[in-house]
Simulated assay, not measured.
Amino acid sequence: MKYLKLFGVFLLLASCSTTQLVENWKNPDIDIYNPSKILIVGVTSNLEAREQFENKLKAEYESRGIEAVTGLEQFEASFTSEKQSEEELKRLENNLIADGFDTILFTKVIGVEDKISYRNDYHQYDNTYRRFSEDYLKYQDAFYNPEYYNEYTVYHAETSMYCICPTKDRELIWKGYIDIIDPESVKETVNDYVRLVMVVLEEQQLTNPKPLIDETNTEAIK
C-alpha cells in the first residue's frame, strides 16, 4: 500500500507544468513534525511574485489549521535585500520564539540556467532505418535552424524548513531542491511550486494533511 501511495505522489508531482522536484532531504531524527505557528519567507527581488508566493503558502497552512505569517507581514519588504549579521538573525529568532513561532519555511532561488532542447522528431525521419547521409542531413543545420531547437530558462530554487524551538539550536528539518522551468506566468508558477511543496511535506509527514471539505449545499438539502 505504501508503494502505491508513493507512486501516486510521484505521478502528482510529475503533472506540475512549471516545477519539478529534483531532490529532497528529511532529517532522519524526525518522523513526524506538525508546526503550530510558521513564518513563511521568500527571497526574490520580484515583490509581486514574493507576495503571491508567501500568501499562497499562508493560505495552504491555514487551511490545515496551522497559524502562518508571511515575511512581508512580519518585516519590512527591504529586510531580505539588506545584509543581516549573525547577531541580528539570532535576535530575530528569539523574538519569533517569544511571539510563539516554532517554524520557518525559507525559499530562495540559488541559480539560473539558459538551456537548449533539440527536437527528436526533426524532419520526422524514421529512426529505425537511417544511412549516414540521412543522419547527416537531418542534423547538419542543428546550430542555426530555429525549428530544430527550443531555448528556455530553468530557475533552481531551494525551500528549507527550520525548527526554532527554544530548547534547541536552529535545526534543519527538511530541504527540497526544485526546478522552475521556463516560467511564463507568476500566478501559475506560484501555484505549481506551492502545490508541489505541500504534497511533499504531507508525504514526509511534516505538516498536517488538508482536511476534506464537504462542499454539499446543506441549505439545499433542507
Rank of each mutant, 00 (worst) to 15 (best):
residue 133 S to V: 07
residue 154 V to D: 03
residue 155 Y to N: 11
residue 133 S to L: 04
residue 143 F to R: 05
residue 155 Y to M: 07
residue 159 T to I: 13
residue 126 D to C: 02
residue 125 Y to C: 02
residue 141 D to Y: 13
residue 124 Q to V: 03
residue 158 E to W: 02
residue 161 M to E: 10
residue 156 H to C: 09
residue 122 Y to S: 03
residue 152 Y to W: 05
residue 127 N to D: 14
residue 143 F to I: 05
residue 122 Y to P: 02
residue 130 R to H: 04
residue 157 A to K: 12
residue 129 Y to H: 11
residue 153 T to G: 08
residue 132 F to L: 13
residue 140 Q to R: 11
residue 148 Y to Q: 12
residue 135 D to K: 10
residue 130 R to T: 06
residue 121 D to A: 06
residue 143 F to V: 05
residue 158 E to M: 12
residue 147 E to T: 07
residue 146 P to A: 08
residue 126 D to Q: 03
residue 157 A to V: 01
residue 146 P to N: 07
residue 154 V to P: 07
residue 153 T to A: 02
residue 131 R to A: 08
residue 119 R to F: 01
residue 129 Y to S: 14
residue 131 R to T: 12
residue 131 R to D: 12
residue 157 A to N: 15
residue 143 F to Q: 05
residue 147 E to D: 14
residue 134 E to F: 04
residue 133 S to P: 03
residue 149 Y to P: 04
residue 129 Y to F: 08
residue 147 E to A: 13
residue 156 H to K: 15
residue 127 N to Q: 09
residue 125 Y to H: 10
residue 128 T to E: 15
residue 136 Y to E: 02
residue 144 Y to D: 13
residue 122 Y to N: 04
residue 119 R to C: 00
residue 161 M to F: 01
residue 120 N to E: 06
residue 140 Q to Y: 06
residue 154 V to I: 15
residue 160 S to H: 04
residue 133 S to A: 09
residue 146 P to I: 02
residue 155 Y to H: 09
residue 132 F to C: 04
residue 158 E to Y: 02
residue 158 E to A: 06
residue 139 Y to V: 10
residue 144 Y to A: 01
residue 133 S to K: 09
residue 120 N to Q: 05
residue 131 R to V: 01
residue 159 T to F: 02
residue 130 R to S: 03
residue 150 N to K: 13
residue 131 R to L: 10
residue 124 Q to E: 14
residue 146 P to S: 06
residue 155 Y to L: 14
residue 160 S to T: 15
residue 133 S to Q: 06
residue 157 A to Q: 12
residue 154 V to N: 05
residue 159 T to V: 14
residue 139 Y to H: 04
residue 128 T to M: 09
residue 128 T to D: 14
residue 145 N to E: 12
residue 161 M to P: 05
residue 152 Y to D: 01
residue 148 Y to I: 08
residue 137 L to A: 10
residue 152 Y to C: 06
residue 126 D to K: 07
residue 144 Y to L: 09
residue 158 E to R: 13
residue 135 D to W: 12
residue 127 N to P: 15
residue 158 E to T: 00
residue 142 A to T: 09
